[in-house]
Amino acid sequence: MSEAVSALPGASYDGYVSVREVGLQGMVTLRGDHATAPITSAVKKVAGVEVPEAWRMSAKGHIGVAWMSPDELMVMGPYADAPATVAAFEKALKGNHFLAVNVSDARAVFEISGAAVREVMAKLVPVDMSTQAFVPGQFRRTRMAQVAAAFWMLDEETIRIVCFRSVAEYVFGLLKDAAEPGSEVGFFG
């Protein structure tokens, strides 16, 4: 089998926050109405966490389940485990109306870290990044300059961003530009 590579292997940039491409990340899209019992119990069984509330994610160890829409979840985990996760959902949801797909290779993941991550993010997304409005545990799908992206905070100084692989270079460019030394705004103090 051919060796899997992420979109921009090893890409990193040190600005007033540091930007790096995270590398291969397992991602499985699960579609189906989360309000129904088959989906909630399958998520609990396969991922080991509860279905998150709207715009939040639940995480446990290496596994994270993010709320994408009322009928879509993204299950994140180690890259190598994604095919097994799909198979587990297919087994757990047999006979139900659902869809589970391994989308790991269709996405790219970036991480920005540093004291000013809220500010760098606020330059790029139309989302209130103040400490009252956005906290770790929340998950937000939005628009990042001209492309779709989703992000969440690991902690106060780390944000992870998921975008489509086809626009990985564009998103890396945006993040580098926003993190350029000398472009500090200091809005969030």
Binding site: A54, W55, S69, P126, T142
Partner: peptide, 12 residues
């Protein structure tokens, strides 16, 4: 109304 989030126009 599906996700309950209030966002600005360019997200729609």
């Amino acid at each position: 109304p599906y996700s309950g989030i209030t966002a600005e126009e360019t997200e729609f």
